[in-house]
Design a protein around this nucleic acid. Sequence first.
DNA 1: GCAAAAGTGTTACGCTTACACCCATGG
DNA 2: CCATGGGTGTAAGCGTAACACTTTTGC
Lengths: 257, 257
Amino acid sequence: MNTEKELLDYIRNGGERFLPHVSIDCAVFGFHDNELKILLLKSKFLEDWALPGGHILRSEPLDVAAQRILNERTGLNDIFLKQFQSFGDPNRVSADNMNYLKEVLKVPLATDHWLLDRTISIGYYALVEFSRVNPILDYFTARYQWWDVHDLPSLVFDHALMVEKALQTVRLQLNYQPVGYNLLPEKFTMPELQKLYETMLEKPLDRRNFQKRMLGLGILERLEERKKVGPHKSPYYYRFNRKKYQEALSAGLSFGF
Amino acid sequence: MNTEKELLDYIRNGGERFLPHVSIDCAVFGFHDNELKILLLKSKFLEDWALPGGHILRSEPLDVAAQRILNERTGLNDIFLKQFQSFGDPNRVSADNMNYLKEVLKVPLATDHWLLDRTISIGYYALVEFSRVNPILDYFTARYQWWDVHDLPSLVFDHALMVEKALQTVRLQLNYQPVGYNLLPEKFTMPELQKLYETMLEKPLDRRNFQKRMLGLGILERLEERKKVGPHKSPYYYRFNRKKYQEALSAGLSFGF
DNA sequence: GCAAAAGTGTTACGCTTACACCCATGG
DNA sequence: CCATGGGTGTAAGCGTAACACTTTTGC
């Protein structure tokens, strides 16, 4: 949807290509500056910020739709994505909230229009490597911005609830999901990994015990290279051993937090 | 839907009262004879067994819809119900699977009929007290039956997948959800409670450690009464102290399994 | 009296936590 | 040389798991 023409076609005829009454919204998490961040977009037509989302093609599986929607917006492929909950409050998107469709776009819309009828949204969360995301603007979107999850702007519809539930889910699954693997770059230091877990768990961890535990899982490889980052000893780089990580996850790995 | 007339009206005009493209299916778990059971129904019009399910009223919240659907089928109120996943494979209900609507009911249906179009189903699981369930038949349903989760019949659509995911979810949440509270009757013995956990965890537990752990949680009350069940010592009855159970859950209770 | 199941307490082990000193680097 | 942060091992304590004998009951 890069032109007004495409947008109008989407509004008028999207109901033929997409499944009405259902949508997908994605809480995209990244990690940067020792903060857990979430990617939000600002529509040209709404005051508040929103999760990236979209509709499901008529014959498209849900997981594929979520991947496609994020790929169109971030350029990323093979994103770590998990469905976490569906949101269906009948007033989650009020008629008022959709008024921009009529007013801003000057398009006459029937009350049973596919975009105005009640819509259930399926919530996905994504874990991505912060630096690899290059948001792609479309005709709908004014800009993208990463937000610290502790300091969010006002969100449209029920998206604040979605973020809250996505966060809860990620935190609960921290012990069993490859959170570090997906949120950190290829190479990272032990203090960086620890900061990630401290941020997720919202509590400080003991450096020595943390390192013992992580190395004890047998899924990390220490590199020769050290990161040079200031007036002190340089930390080693580590990377995940993909194969061993996969094996450990299959075998019921728990990080023990 | 107790008469053919009501059923026909539902098929013809249900799309006005219910939200199309979305449905709810419920995996109802009970515990009996030391087995975890699931409640399935046999439609008059299908070969295979099915989870109880239904559609969402146009302005009804999801959780309310799930409660209503189960209440209509089991007579139970205030059921412990949790949404666990939405299922949206485009072929989860094939056109062939819906042929019964045309053939058996002899109703001419357009291809864009609200019941034939692709439908996303929101999966809920319920934990109920086995003995309190009195299934209510309607015009659609031939009968209900409890099935051991290890020995299920052939299921319609993608309902086998739903049962599998529901089971996974229940097992994962065993430590944080009041599983015993909802699956057992008011009064129960310690061996019964232990059997429930052994069934859920699929492994034997030590009697003494189990009892210590459960009593240590401070949510059980021992009654004077003992259950008389055979040529051996009679076990005490216990019941949950609701108030303390709620407090413990809020405080982040974990059973430790 | 015997078979079957329930009531009960103690010990050992392992895992988790707490904790401190030395080293490298940049300014 | 000093401030900052990273690398590393050990000891104590707590929680979990292992384990056996006695009691009750029905036949």
